[in-house]
Design a protein around this nucleic acid. Sequence first.
RNA 1: AGGGGUGUAGCCAAGUGGUAAGGCAACGGUCUUUGGAAUCGUCAUUCGUUGGUUCGAAUCCAGCCACCCCUGCCA
Length: 567
Amino acid sequence: MEMTEGKEEKNLEETAKTEGKNFIQHFIDGDLAEGKIRPGPCRFPRSNGYLHIGHAKAICLNFGLALANGGKCNLRFDDTNPTKEEQEFVDSIKADVEWLGFHWDHLFFASDYFEKLYLLAEKLVTIGKAYVCDLSPEEIHQYRGALTEPGKESPYRDRSPEENLDLLRKMKAGEFPDGSRVLRAKIDMASPNLNMRDPVLYRIQRAHHHRTGDGWCIYPMYDFAHPLSDAIEGITHSICTMEFEDHRPLYDWCINAADMPCKSRQIEFARLNMSYTVMSKRKLKLLVEEGYVQGWDDPRLPTLSGIRRRGYPAESIRAFCESIGVAKANSTVDIAQLEFFVRDHLNYHAPRAMAVLDPLKVTITNYPEGQEEMMQVVNNPEDSEAGTRPVPFSRQILIEKSDFMEQPTKKFHRLSPGAEIRLQNAYYIKCEDYKKDENGEVVELFCTYDPSTRGGWSEDGRKVKGTAHWLSYPHAVKGEVRLYNRLFSVENPDDYPEGGSFLDHINPQSVEVVEAYLEPSLAEVKPGDRFQFLRQGYFVADPDGALGRPVFNRIISLKDSFKKIMK
RNA sequence: AGGGGUGUAGCCAAGUGGUAAGGCAACGGUCUUUGGAAUCGUCAUUCGUUGGUUCGAAUCCAGCCACCCCUGCCA
């Protein structure tokens, strides 16, 4: 038998080829049709910080586009600012991309091109398209003008190419102090696009660079390095987010001014926002550094490391990114859409197991004392290849407290005085009596079982409405279970009153830790092993666990229509 | 105020002059040894808005409205 059909994930190539086309693919199609550009590599530029689900969208887009068009995708770090680059981020970003299942063609750093970029800068100076400016940062700011007013030209704007070249070389040689001079593009101080008002191309900055060490004291700006790095690599379509749209004229200017043979094209798309979470680096950093969460890989965070620890499968992240499409309009995707793809994948791939999170003891009065037996239980009804496992049954069992109601409502199909239900894969049991403690809380049930219903089937065709999961009390193992919920209690945490903060919306119940009872097979799980705890949700073994003492994170609960019915 | 963008259902999103795809959510039915899954069905007479062009407009034109981005030697 084979795996249940229908919802299986497509492999990367199939997905890339068959899914509906987004506007970027239309651009590429157009370029292809005109024959003026052949599809080349894409690239994923990132510099610092941990990746989150929004970056996953960009990664899936870039690598997906490359795959769909027979191109390659490079991974490039735009490490042009030495004070902001850290090896730690490089390593985590590489790990995240790999985890998502993508393979880059080449791993590049903008710093690989420092020499080439510098030569290009000299070229611009030589042909009179760039100049060395001695204005201070404050002065440059003032000269830039305002949104509605044109800027003023720098008094150094008309230096000769010879003088500029000499000055640039001296900048490079370290003859001037930090911040004393910059190299600027000579474009148009009256441009309505502020980015075109003689933007800075190089700054003097004596800082140790994580890859080039102290080899340079001048560093290119992103606006200069990015387009030229793309052109050097032969990237034909350079995808970035909307806030760079105003930079595109400058992107094109650099490539044309330097007369690069590869006319790379920048295309912008809207970044991903999601309900019930925050995506900005600043806010995520605050959550981590102020201790609202345990770290960058806290399972409640939308970081890829957090999502991974939470147990979300990479396949489901890819399917999600595929489903949300790509466009230019601001949007906030409902987190329920992500959760759908997580459940969808796990339903087919996570073996089932039984766990009781809030136990109620049940004694089966007509089951012989000291007797026990093994029930052969299907691991995954959605996957016939997943096999079966033995689960012990005995006189003392544990069920979920919520599966018993002393005075049941009409819609309640579970156990109540006199009611009969099925213990899944075991027997029908009927509640004959129950015991309360001094507080009036039900602490134990006394049931009888029907020996002819072994496996959970009745010979006389009698039906029961409820089916419950259970554990043999003497055989159960204990473990920690962390029940994660959404980090924020409102759809848009950024929507808060004057003087407030997104922190005010943190869900006080974003995690609940319980001591749970687990079936014996769960004693020896490995971190990353995923299960569906029957009738409850999907869970993943956390690295915090130890052999015989597992720790599980709840990935996502099962959809729960019972909650709705009972309302 | 200048420039650049964007408005299609509760949320994403196709649609490119021929009469509104798809997914999520929601809501009903069937089925069920997970109140899960599966399955069937319902869910935009209308595309921010007002006019215009056209036999015909979400698509073309004009005006208006709303929201986002831009004055780092950050990316």
